[in-house]
Design a protein around this nucleic acid. Structure first.
Lengths: 149, 149
DNA sequence: TATACTGTGGGACATTGTGGGAAAAAGTAG
DNA sequence: CTACTTTTTCCCACAATGTCCCACAGTATA
């Protein structure tokens, strides 16, 4: 599977449509399926998966996943599946962001679509900046030093 | 069998009819049978199964299911079958929710139909929100990190 | 400069959610 | 069994939403 990298800035139009970066569209064309999978992510963003990654997630990771507490496991699986959507980009390469996911990620103004390796992430730009300052920047320096980049 | 995912908001009309999300109807059309199976679910919701999943549940999972305490097993199976209904959507894609199931799930105001993988679930929206806050949110982050999504 | 592509907007059409009425079926009382 | 009432099923209606298609200005590419 292609690695998703890069940073792209878009806006949600009046109909809650979001453009997918051309490079990610190209990656999608290389895949077997035609649709992307959009879910609510951690730290207030949305996750976007290519079909191959989504299938692996569901068929392997998820199928064998269990928690000691069955009630917790049920709760997790409920949330995971109920806040996931299969979206096929329209002719202009856009997907539709459902209202509840828009709210989850606090999408108001300009958005960022970030490559994040095996997935992409969608952030409200302001929220990303705040998160970047408070969490990413400090961690990044520390980690980069350990890696000796 | 198709995975059922996504979140959809509806209301029960005056005749206790509930719309089925178009995507789930499409999944039903792919199946051999024409009807959905509705049962009382855990944690105060209703479960909704596609024909193929229901058959597997009854023929395999259920047939081989046993409890050490035979009386408990009998009680469970009684409840399971007696609170299950076979519902065929009408021309507008709605099913009829029996009174006792409506009460089991506390369906009063707006409802949610949630994709939950191999089944769908029907929740009173307020009840889901309470459940989400108290059970799902705490478990979610922990589990998502373990999965390394 | 010309060409292709991208991001964004908007209109036309189809589908959906929801309500209600008529017909059929089931139940009840005499 | 008959006459009447209630419930259920089926069909139609329609506003509102969603989907699909085309448009166009701006940018990058050749």
């Amino acid at each position: 599977m292609a690695l998703l990298i890069g940073r792209y800035e878009y806006t949600l139009d009046g109909k809650n449509r979001l453009a997918i970066p051309p490079k990610f569209r190209a990656a999608l064309r290389e895949e077997k399926g035609r649709s992307l999978f959009l879910t609510s992510g951690l730290d207030g963003c949305l996750y976007l998966f290519l079909p191959s990654r989504w299938r692996r997630l569901v068929d392997e990771d998820f199928a064998s996943f269990s928690l000691p507490d069955k009630e917790e496991e049920r709760a997790f699986k409920r949330k995971f599946f109920s806040e996931a959507e299969e979206m096929t980009p329209d002719a202009a390469g856009r997907i539709l962001v459902p209202q509840y996911l828009k709210e989850h990620a606090g999408l108001r103004g300009p958005l960022l679509v970030l490559g994040a390796g095996r997935r992409a992430e969608i952030w409200d730009r302001d929220r990303w900046n705040a998160y970047d300052q408070s969490k990413v920047a400090p961690a990044y320096e520390k980690a980069a030093k350990r890696l000796e980049i």
